[in-house]
Amino acid sequence: MSPNDPNSMSELYSAYAAGRLSPAFALMVETQAAIRADIAEDVATSEAIAGSMLEREDKVLLAPNAFERALKAVEAIEADEAAAVSAAKKAGEGINELLALPEPLRARAIEACSDGGWNKMTRGVSRLDLSGNAFVQAHLYRIQPGAGVPQHSHRGDEYTLVVQGGFTDHAGTYGPGDICTQSPTDTHQPVADDDGVCMALVISEGGLKFTGLLGMIQKVLRK
């Protein structure tokens, strides 16, 4: 998928507008739209089309307790916001980087940092688990300038959205708002640009499969 071709993501945006995306993919779409105005416009167009189609549907009476359920949903959102503020106080070092992230990624990252914190993968590369126990995984990667994620393939499709900075792999260079896609048959090694920390949101339908020595260690640990 070309990082400069938003039309190639149109099906994903349509699924988002229709409410059919998993939370992880919805987070990716919302974050990309917060970074790039052209993507926000595409998402808005998809939502308008979905809304128009919804208006043509036959009207259905609401359940008797629909209003009460809506109020509880609003209260839950407000509680989540309060929890995010509390989590921010616990996040400590590195909180300024998290605060610089666009919403809704910012709140998710702060909460995850409070719950489990960053896990160091290799020198210069750390990641934050945003997905919990969800089947579709979401991780925020922090890659120091010049550092790289070890060469790997994937157990499923992978989407990497650059949130800050940039990285390069064998296929090209990606900057803020670009999405790099990888299939289970692809192998790559993203290396962060030298001019700053790269923050990337990675959505995957399976874990990483490392090559070389790390791959051998990974196989042993899985036994």
Rank of each mutant, 00 (worst) to 15 (best):
residue 215 G to W: 07
residue 135 F to G: 13
residue 113 C to M: 11
residue 174 Y to M: 05
residue 216 M to I: 10
residue 59 K to C: 12
residue 175 G to W: 03
residue 144 Q to L: 05
residue 218 Q to S: 07
residue 118 W to D: 01
residue 201 L to R: 03
residue 172 G to H: 05
residue 188 H to I: 01
residue 67 F to P: 09
residue 56 R to Q: 05
residue 205 E to M: 04
residue 162 V to E: 14
residue 166 G to I: 00
residue 193 D to W: 09
residue 162 V to D: 09
residue 211 T to H: 05
residue 73 A to T: 01
residue 223 K to Y: 05
residue 209 K to N: 15
residue 7 N to C: 10
residue 52 S to D: 06
residue 50 A to M: 06
residue 21 L to Y: 00
residue 116 G to F: 05
residue 106 R to T: 02
residue 92 G to N: 03
residue 197 V to N: 02
residue 148 G to H: 08
residue 71 L to P: 03
residue 44 A to K: 05
residue 222 R to T: 15
residue 152 H to A: 04
residue 108 R to H: 12
residue 160 T to H: 05
residue 2 S to Q: 15
residue 95 I to W: 01
residue 217 I to P: 12
residue 177 G to E: 07
residue 142 R to P: 00
residue 51 G to E: 10
residue 2 S to T: 07
residue 218 Q to M: 10
residue 129 D to E: 04
residue 55 E to M: 15
residue 29 V to P: 02
residue 30 E to Y: 14
residue 50 A to W: 05
residue 28 M to T: 03
residue 1 M to A: 07
residue 147 A to L: 04
residue 139 H to W: 13
residue 111 E to N: 08
residue 43 V to F: 00
residue 1 M to R: 01
residue 143 I to P: 02
residue 197 V to W: 14
residue 42 D to W: 15
residue 91 A to W: 14
residue 8 S to I: 02
residue 117 G to M: 06
residue 217 I to R: 15
residue 141 Y to F: 10
residue 92 G to I: 01
residue 51 G to P: 02
residue 3 P to V: 04
residue 155 R to Q: 14
residue 155 R to T: 12
residue 161 L to P: 13
residue 90 K to I: 05
residue 146 G to V: 02
residue 137 Q to S: 10
residue 63 A to T: 04
residue 141 Y to H: 07
residue 51 G to F: 03
residue 99 L to S: 06
residue 134 A to K: 08
residue 127 R to T: 03
residue 190 P to C: 13
residue 72 K to P: 01
residue 41 E to P: 03
residue 40 A to D: 13
residue 43 V to A: 02
residue 89 K to P: 04
residue 80 D to A: 15
residue 135 F to L: 15
residue 79 A to D: 05
residue 192 A to Q: 06
residue 200 A to K: 14
residue 175 G to V: 10
residue 75 E to Q: 12
residue 144 Q to H: 08
residue 35 I to E: 01
residue 202 V to I: 09
residue 135 F to W: 07
residue 159 Y to K: 09
residue 96 N to C: 11
residue 173 T to R: 14
residue 168 T to P: 01
residue 141 Y to G: 06
residue 124 G to P: 01
residue 54 L to T: 00
residue 183 S to W: 08
residue 119 N to F: 13
